[in-house]
Structure formats: C-alpha cells, structure tokens
Amino acid sequence: MPIATRETTDPVLDGWHPIAASGELSMGEQRRTRLLGEALDIEIDLLGNASVARATAPAEPLPTHDRYGYLWTCLGEPSIPLFEIPEVDEPGRRVLHAGTIGVHVSAPRAVENFLDMAHFPYVHTDILGVEPFTEVAEYDVHIDSINELWATDCVFWQPIAATTSTEGQMTDYEYRVPHPYCVILYKTSPIDDRKDVIALFCQPVDEERIEAHMFLCLLDASNSTAMIRDFQLTIFGQDKPILENQYPKRLPLDPRAETPIRADKVAISYRRWLSDQGVTYAVIPA
C-alpha cells in the first residue's frame, strides 16, 4: 500500500472514489479504468471478488469497497470513511444504477450543475421545469456537524418531476454534498411521503474528465427499470452538452469568478466548502 507520511489528510487522495458499477462487472472480467489521472486495472475473480491495482508498477492491490452498487477505491490512505446513505436499507425502495456517462468536464462542475435549479426550464424543458416558472426562491444552506454541505427548503415547479408523475407539481428538493465529487438529492415523491434519493457519483478520470455514475434509490414500484433508466439518462443527456461547453473545465473557487447570483447560494457555498477543505484537484484554487 502506498502509505505516504503526510501530516494532513488529503480530501481527494485519501477519499473513496467510484470506479465501476458493480452490476456491470462480470466474473472473470478484466477491465481498465482511470482515476485521478492514473490507469487502474480491475479484475473480478471467479468467486466475484474484485481486486484493483495501478496499471503501472507497483501493482500492489488498492483498497476496495463495494457499496451502493459501485466499486470504490482509494489511491491514498483510506482514512476518510465513505458517506452513509441510510435510505438504501429502508423497505419499499428500489436501488438502481441508472447508467454511467463519460463527460469532458471536471467533477466539481458536474456536481455544481447537479445542485442547480435555475437551468431546469431551459435545459430540461417540459420535464424538470418549464417557462415562465423560472424563479428560484430563497432556500437555506448549511454545513452539518460531520462537515456535509446541505441546501434545504428548495422548491421548484416541475411538469414531470419523476417517472411516477401524472401532473406538474411544486417539487421540494434537498441537496446533500457529502464528498467533494459526490452529490445526493432528496426529492418529493409524487406517490409517497418519503423522498426519492437520486445521487451523482463522479469518478474523476482526470482533472477535466469524469465518468458520471447515476445512483437511484426510489419509491417507484411500478415502472420498469428500463423506463426509469431512460428518464435519468434523458436528463443527464441534456446536461452533458452544456457541461462540455463550459470553460474553464475546472471549477474556479475565487468567489468573484463567474457572476454569482442569489440563486447560486449553494454553488457559492460548495466552492467555499471545497476551498476550506483544501481541495485542489479539478478546481482552480482561489
């Protein structure tokens, strides 16, 4: 194990990162992927156990973790525990991997886009938003006791909020950022008092490229997996061309950059939160 003698924990190097959807790995499969600019080899033995190693010497095994339907690894000292999503163990929920999409953008840009409501009427027209309902109402942002960033009391008018929608609704959102490159959304379910959980786990291939893994933990018992995946892939497919036309590709952390407005409160907090943790990978430090 490459144990560096560092005084402080590196929020990126010492964190867990997703490198594949477990359900898409088959026994005996060998696969190469990239994380933080390094090539990694994934190997699944005939018992289904995954091992991960750097493609370049030394080929010592890296730590792995199979969680939420993804294979996670860490290139540094795995001292930062993987965040919890307690909803996955609740009865009546479906945990799904919606898909993995490569995007030529940095992980924090993708996270920031996931945290953004103002683009719904324009990028996800007639699904997550529709003109003229474009206003982003004031919402709350806080950092909780375990240093996770939250945006709460977010509301937005949505024509088709989910696969279970039959009409438009004022949707309540809560966003949670437990990891520099992972973001979780809790969203009003059209059919249940509890909330749907939708997450984006970014695999930072390098500073300007990601594999975006889309995780779902839904209260939808009726629709087919294919239909639910189609819905999420449609949404993400609409975001991809926007993200790939955004420059610079790394996220600027200077608070003066890119004309923030009140609707960007959570993005402003996310940029500061990254700065405060000392994240320097895939960002332009302030």
């Binding site: 420059y247 003066r256 004309t259 332009i284």
Partner: peptide, 12 residues
C-alpha cells in the same frame, strides 16, 4: 489547445 482566455474564469 483550449481557446485563449478560456483557462481562466470570467470575472466582472
């Protein structure tokens, strides 16, 4: 190469 100026963010 990326377009000139695109490596730095827009700042008012």
């Amino acid at each position: 190469t990326p377009p000139r100026g695109f490596e730095t963010p827009v700042i008012l």
